[in-house]
Amino acid sequence: MLLVQILVNGVLLGGLYGLMALGMALVWGVLNIVNLAHGAFIMLGGYLVFFLFTAGLDPLVSLPIAMAVLFLFGYVIQRSLLNLIVRSALLNTLLFTFGLDVVLTYLAQLLFSADFRTINPSYAGANFSVGAVTVPVGRLIAFAIAVALALLLYLLLERTRLGRAIRATAQNLDAARLYGVNPAQIYAITFGIGAALAGAAGTLYGIVAQITPYIGVTLTPKSFVIAIIGGLDNPLRIVAGGIVIGVAEAVTSLYLGPTYTDVVSFGLLVLILVLRPAQSLKIA
């Protein structure tokens, strides 16, 4: 029964992990930028909602606000800075987002202090029982919203004009230009959507866990691994990838102890990367 409980926890948390990875996978697939500041974006979303919460706003109300603010933030970063170097070697974009991560992390430490923060509306700590299994309400809400946002992203990419433009840009920049797409604009919008998804993930992360300026350090690699497991082309498969990692983590900390989760998740990362060839990762 303990195992079932662990599995439930892992699956629910995994949905949130999937949401974290969505934005990173989208940006990676379309812009060919691995955004090492993605975890820092999640952190910013978390802090924004935390402060709105202390001002009396329910996090579920703040969620769209966080998404909108992060969208703007991402849009401006891409339009004004990243677009300047987007065609240079991967090494350079990687380093740039790494620098961005450092700036955001230490800025957050300076402005918000290193204290642990949690967003705890009444439902965050609540739970209910199904048979012998306890279902935490906070995680359930996070899971539901993550799946809903993945669905929305899927519909956006497949069913709208903007989605078609994004996919065309991902496949062939020059061809997209011929069809009247402005790549600079599409890049900025895509990066903005990626940041907005990070904002949503940060909101939900603040409900189920604690926020510090440094959470990005672990969330960025985690998002990366999930993006690889799920592939870059299908949002729903990325959420599934998140669930895989969520369950693996829950099981590890049950059987080996929480100090080993870092060792195990690092080993898992290497294993997945070595076993899964990189060429299967092109966006469809």
Binding site: V34, T220, P221, V225, I228, D262, A278
Partner: peptide
């Protein structure tokens, strides 16, 4: 054997893992 971002990201975890060890 990993290239580009794959290699870079894997290396992010090494120190944390060794520190835990």
């Amino acid at each position: 054997r990993l290239r580009g971002p794959y290699f870079a990201i894997v290396t992010l975890g090494i120190s944390a893992a060794m520190s835990a060890l």
